[in-house]
Design a protein around this nucleic acid. Structure first.
Length: 543
DNA sequence: AACGGGATCAACCGCCCACAG
DNA sequence: ACTGTGGGCGGTTGATCCCGT
């Protein structure tokens, strides 16, 4: 449908006021005016009935076949976001929250693709969650991504370069479609990293992500924006079906290594998650967080992927006020200089353009701290090496800045760097560390287990209920509490009842514990969200 | 109890792409 | 090659909820 046609269709969707008026005068139904606004249980039932009989698709025929006075798009959305029997309703679990952040670091604002990685979750849910989280973090002066995410990402950047795993996108369509930022897999073969832990996902860096998230220094803004803002959107869904082997599969499917740690709780998850974060937004987004609120993290109006020129400029220029940390403090812990040198030796000029900007950024960052660093100044480098160099810089940067134990990915970090993790008091990124004590992890696992069980049951319930003959008659199946216009799943409420109290309690408890014992080097997630934990930590500190 | 502001989320909007004719 | 249609996507809006004062 063309924009015009769709616009026309949208126009056909009259506003709520019109709906009420029309309803009162009997104009609804039969293909006349189309209703807008909140869906009623009856409408849901009609739509479900239609889908059962006709299947998904042909949404514009819903009105004709079912008499539902909704435009096709509205029907599709309602089905996809609320009525699908396989939906997982309810709050995101800590595990899911983590996954969202990781996926966003990897994909950017590709909500649909992210949703595809999270069975039962909708793009809308994820988008809302993310936007809310971003607002919160901005307001709190926190970076978008936990430092560990970025660090893990950089770690993985190299690990995946090993290129032994064929999974996931090896070339992001955005990149391929927009510029020369193609990173030949062969370029990674020379890299040596024996991080078995890591999965091999190759960088999946949407142009928009790379671009807006951080490569955009004031210097590179103009350069890369022109390069990376191709047609506004690049069709990804279908390509993803090819590139992502397990669309709509479980996390374990997408990240096969999960299968190895079915019971290890979030630690394994974080370990694994670190492996799925190839160069991406986080690369240049959240990983610059330091123990102080970043200026660029203070602008609450900027979209998640956008930073002011001043912000990004400060990265590249390495001004005295720049939050950039020491770059070389831990490089040897990560990879031997010889390895890096060897990679540098493999530089070529095949890839330029964006990569130049990447490397330039990398170089600038590093040189800002240590002008004697022998990082190559050649801005025309192999993509792999460019990213590697940048990764190295950022990793080092983060290592020094974020020796804090707060990050949920601390496990992965610690696992990667073993016992070398410096002890730090706190960080303002995740304002205060929420360290995972063994008992905390146990709680996390317990919560996850309960959540999982509930979800399973919920899904089963959905599926079974969906098959019940009285399903369509029982509009309350949806658990709609029309009170005050909101809809709540009965199941969700039940789950919330089951989890809510203890969950929150655990969060505060964990936060208190971690604040009180910053020497603990075990880092990772608690049983609550980062933001919740951050908030709890703040409260703890205030107390 | 009333109020205000932030948080949340369902729904919509505008744009775009794939595909069939 | 062109056009129309179906459908998907990301961004935005607005209603409601929640919580602190």
């Amino acid at each position: 449908m063309t924009s015009d046609s769709e616009d026309k269709m949208s126009e056909d969707c009259m506003d709520s006021a019109s709906v009420e008026e029309a309803s009162s005068i009997g104009k609804l139904g039969g293909g006349g005016l189309l209703k807008k606004g909140p869906w009623t249980s009856a409408e849901d039932a009609i739509l479900v009935d239609y889908v059962i009989k006709h299947g998904e698709g042909n949404w514009n025929t819903v009105q004709k076949h079912s008499g539902l006075s909704r435009c096709g798009k509205s029907c599709r959305l309602r089905w996809a976001n609320h009525l699908r029997p396989d939906l997982r309703k309810g709050a995101f679990t800590p595990k899911e929250e983590r996954q969202i952040i990781e996926l966003h670091a990897k994909m950017g604002n590709k909500w649909a693709r992210m949703a595809a990685e999270m069975p039962g979750r909708t793009d809308n849910e994820i988008k809302n969650y993310w936007n809310t989280r971003i607002k919160r973090r901005h307001r709190a002066g926190l970076p978008i991504y936990p430092p560990d995410i970025s660090q893990a990402l950089h770690e993985n950047q190299q690990c995946q370069n090993v290129g032994t795993f064929p999974m996931v996108e090896t070339h992001h369509p955005d990149l391929l479609s927009t510029n020369s930022f193609e990173i030949p897999a062969v370029e990674f073969k020379n890299l040596e990293l024996d991080q078995q832990l890591y999965s091999p996902a190759l960088p999946d860096m949407p142009a928009s992500g790379l671009l807006a998230q951080g490569l955009g220094s004031s210097h590179s803004d103009s350069l890369m924006f022109s390069m990376l803002h191709p047609p506004k959107r690049f069709r990804e869904s279908r390509e993803s079906e090819c590139l992502i082997p397990c669309v709509n599969s479980s996390t374990a499917d997408y990240f096969p290594a999960f299968d190895q740690y079915p019971d290890d709780g979030c630690e394994k998850i974080t370990q694994l998650s670190s492996s799925i974060l190839p160069g991406s937004h986080a690369l240049l987004n959240g990983n610059f967080s330091s123990s102080e609120p970043m200026p660029w993290a203070m602008n609450p109006e900027l979209p998640s992927l956008q930073y002011s020129d001043a912000q990004v400029g400060s990265w590249g220029t390495g001004t005295p006020s720049s939050p950039l940390p020491s770059l070389d403090s831990v490089s040897t812990l990560i990879r031997s200089p010889s390895t890096e040198q060897a990679q540098s030796d493999s530089l070529s000029r095949r890839n330029s353009g964006l990569l130049e900007a990447v490397l330039y950024e990398s170089h600038t960052l590093k040189s800002s701290k240590n002008s004697s660093c022998d990082l190559t100044s050649n801005v025309s480098v192999v993509a792999g090496d460019a990213m590697d160099s940048l990764s190295q810089n950022l990793r080092e940067t983060q290592w020094e800045i974020h020796s804090d134990p707060i990050s949920p990915l601390g496990h992965s970090t610690s696992s990667v760097f073993s016992e070398c993790t410096p002890i730090s008091g706190s960080s303002f990124d995740e304002p205060h560390s929420v360290e995972i004590f063994p008992e905390c992890l146990a709680k996390q696992e317990a919560v996850d287990w309960v959540t999982t069980k509930c979800d399973v049951n919920e899904e089963n319930a959905n599926q079974m209920m969906f098959l019940r003959p009285d399903f369509l008659l029982a509009s309350n199946w949806f658990g709609h509490s029309t009170e005050r216009g909101r809809e709540h799943s009965v199941l969700n409420d039940t789950r919330g009842t089951l989890l809510g109290g203890d969950f929150n309690s655990d969060c505060k408890q964990i936060s208190t514990m971690s604040v009180s014992d910053s020497s603990c080097q075990k880092r990772g997630r608690g049983s609550c969200s980062w933001d919740d934990m951050s908030t709890a930590c703040e409260l703890s500190e205030n107390l």
